[in-house]
């Protein structure tokens, strides 16, 4: 019984406080999940450049919203593209 009451109270607190729930503006969707036709390919630097910063670093998936599976493909593709000089390893110093 005790436990049940506690659980209820905790839930109330969560709702009242609203601290635990931060509201995000928009749920980011994985680019490659939404469009199955698009594959992360090292031969497509135009697409890949969307996922790197201006300095040439790969954008983390917490920012870009890419899912884990596709982020793995993406990093491979970006690194291959770098080898072929399609994308920069690092572009221009700060």
């Amino acid at each position: 019984m005790e436990r049940h009451r506690d659980r209820d109270r905790d839930r109330d607190r969560d709702d009242r406080g609203g601290m635990k729930r931060r509201s995000f503006g928009r749920r980011k969707a994985c680019r490659f999940c939404t469009d199955k036709e698009v594959k992360a390919d090292f031969k497509n630097p135009r697409l890949l450049s969307y996922f790197i910063t201006e300095r040439g670093r790969i954008i983390p998936r917490r920012i870009s919203g890419t899912c884990a599976l596709h982020q793995r493909d993406l990093t491979t593709a970006v690194k291959q593209a770098r080898i072929m000089a399609l994308l920069p390893f690092a572009s221009t110093q700060r």
Binding site: P45, R46, L47, S49, Y50, E54
Partner: peptide
């Protein structure tokens, strides 16, 4: 929309 911010560089 698909246009990257630095495409002109390439």
């Amino acid at each position: 929309g698909q246009e990257p911010h630095r495409s002109q560089d390439y």
